[in-house]
Nucleic acid binder design. Sequence first.
DNA 1: TAGATTGTTAATCGATTAACAATC
DNA 2: TAGATTGTTAATCGATTAACAATC
Lengths: 206, 206
Amino acid sequence: MNKQNVPDVIVSRLPVYLRALQRLADAGETATSSQELGEKVGISAAQIRKDLSQFGEFGKQGTGYHIPFLIERLSQILHVDRIWDVAVVGMGDIGHAVARYNGFANRGFRVTHCFDADPAKIGKEIGGFIILDAKNLVEEVRKAEIKIAMLCVPATVAQDVADRLIEAGVRGILNYAPLKLIVPSTVRVQHIDPAIGMQRMTYYFD
Amino acid sequence: MNKQNVPDVIVSRLPVYLRALQRLADAGETATSSQELGEKVGISAAQIRKDLSQFGEFGKQGTGYHIPFLIERLSQILHVDRIWDVAVVGMGDIGHAVARYNGFANRGFRVTHCFDADPAKIGKEIGGFIILDAKNLVEEVRKAEIKIAMLCVPATVAQDVADRLIEAGVRGILNYAPLKLIVPSTVRVQHIDPAIGMQRMTYYFD
DNA sequence: TAGATTGTTAATCGATTAACAATC
DNA sequence: TAGATTGTTAATCGATTAACAATC
């Protein structure tokens, strides 16, 4: 029950379970089993039961799991039983796309602030937001109490911008810049790099 | 040496090493050690040496690794000592951004084909490409011998489109749709879902 | 009740780390 | 040579799987 004791590898699978459960719910299902869920996510039934058992007893012998209940509990565990405001920094193609991304709906996030340092972009509207001056990043992020940012700036300035985000109180960074950020242990970083994903596939090609 | 025997977890780290080495090379460095590289990528020196030893002996005792040589060898191992043509399917915001993404330069990939099913988009230009009709997907992908696709279509049609890509000879799919694709074991899939990345961070927040 | 499926334990499997001889 | 760092082995650590009593 003490989250300090739950291995990262287990935590990393919970959002995958939640996503699959929400798809089942959308399809009108109300019950599932570790067996069925395992097939949906490509993970063994035993592992799903073991993972969930870290957090409580959510199922019933004989009948499995009640989908709405399990969604509720996983949402609480992952702290997405609320909406987190998110800042996007860097309004190039990627920043533009993630700011307008509609895949966050019902998953706990909404973009509320967009920043760029380019005077040609500042003040322009994008997906309903006015692009803010990156000069005011620390002030604005702190004022809005934003804890999560998506970093879409060029690699050359990514570490600098990350430092300022952390200074402003950000505790999680989704990093689209192709380098590893150095951050205090209190800050979480998730890296998204499509070229890395591609190279993990070409290894297996002839 | 037999790639069947190299665990996926090791393969998945090689692109990270390669990216860090290319950054060091860009900075003018010609030599490094497992110690220094480990600090750059956040992995222990022992693990880096163990990982590399799966593929050969690339370093020298006392002096470490010659960066250009290690880049060359890792590029060969990952099969990015060539340029792979890539198809982007689905020209929404994400497809638009990845088609124009300049982060593939020097990393083994270039986008050569863009598809969409929307008559309003077909024929339009985007980042130097004319958007092709998704109706001709199988034919065009097969003709161009494309082996890698980035899937940027809505979740509702993602599995269908993936099936057609595989039919056309695609062997690797970078999947931006928020669901797990079911594919034959000969096909590799890498998933990119920003909401999953965010939920992996909020777990640790109060 | 009979069948199904959980939560958990023990066994297995695999990955990481520590240590060091080899050698540049 | 002396210092540094590799590649590799053995030890440790952690994650996954298999099995099953509990029970709905």
